[in-house]
């Protein structure tokens, strides 16, 4: 009998700690498949964030380095500059990348560092328990914005793809989501394209994934995915934001 589906060799044989309905597992799978299909499991180095993705090095099969909060692009720069033949990618959440690590991601993009960043945007701090992120939508409640995010008080959420796309070093930025099967297929294509461009030495590549966090959003999985496809995708438009 021919198997119609097998687990990617890009994943280790271990249980993930992520909550039910969380998007991290799906994105891990898409990265794992990409590494396998491009035959780079054996050469790649992953930089993990601080946040829910902190254990990603225990899940993906490639070598990994755990960075301090927000510093993954700097760590990746140190690796890619000294090991230019190795595929290098960071995996970062929105607190990590868009808040504490904003300088590191902006300057890595400005320099056109030849690594890939997978940016998981779920509009909330997951690991620490649902605090407001720079990406939290207006009106969305968080444990540090109990009345919901207010424009006058907190400002408007940051659109990282658009912001980074103003920089010459960035050659590809696409925003995707994994809320249903068609979007998962598109997300896979984007991730694979980003890695392919990296392998072609084109420049900095960036894939933003709108992700669900049912636990901290206090939603069912179905409601959470509707939230991604509804209010989130409305504020954070899906699709290619920049391609050189």
């Amino acid at each position: 009998m021919k198997p119609v589906y097998v687990k990617s060799k890009g994943l280790q044989d271990t249980e993930l700690h992520y909550c039910p309905g969380c998007s991290h597992g799906i994105v891990h799978k898409l990265i794992a498949e990409t590494l396998e299909e491009l035959n780079i499991i054996d050469t790649s180095v992953l930089i993990c964030p601080v946040g829910c993705g902190v254990f990603a090095g225990n899940y993906l099969a490639c070598d990994a380095v755990e960075a301090a909060h927000g510093r993954a692009p700097a760590v990746a720069t140190g690796i890619k500059r000294t090991c230019p033949d190795q595929p290098v990618f960071t995996y970062q959440g929105d607190g990590d990348l868009a808040s504490i690590g904003i300088a590191e991601i902006v300057h890595a993009a400005m320099r056109g560092e030849k690594f890939t960043t997978i940016f998981i945007n779920n509009g909330i701090y997951g690991m620490t328990g649902g605090q407001m992120a720079p990406t939290t939508l207006i009106g969305q409640k968080a444990t540090t914005a109990p009345l919901g995010r207010q424009k006058e008080l907190h400002g408007e959420p940051i659109r990282m793809c658009e912001m980074l796309s103003s920089l010459g070093g960035l050659v590809y930025a696409e925003r995707v989501c994994v809320a249903d099967v068609p979007h998962i297929i598109k997300a896979k294509r984007a991730i694979k394209k980003a890695f392919t461009k990296q392998l072609n030495n084109e420049g900095f590549t960036f894939v933003e994934v709108l992700a669900a966090c049912p636990t901290n959003w206090a939603m069912t999985t179905r409601k959470a995915n509707e939230w991604v496809l509804g209010p989130m995708a409305e504020y954070y438009p899906l699709g290619v934001i920049k391609e050189v």
Partner: peptide, 10 residues
Amino acid sequence: VAAINMVYGA
């Protein structure tokens, strides 16, 4: 901060 984290990576 970035410089020392580049050191960390390398």
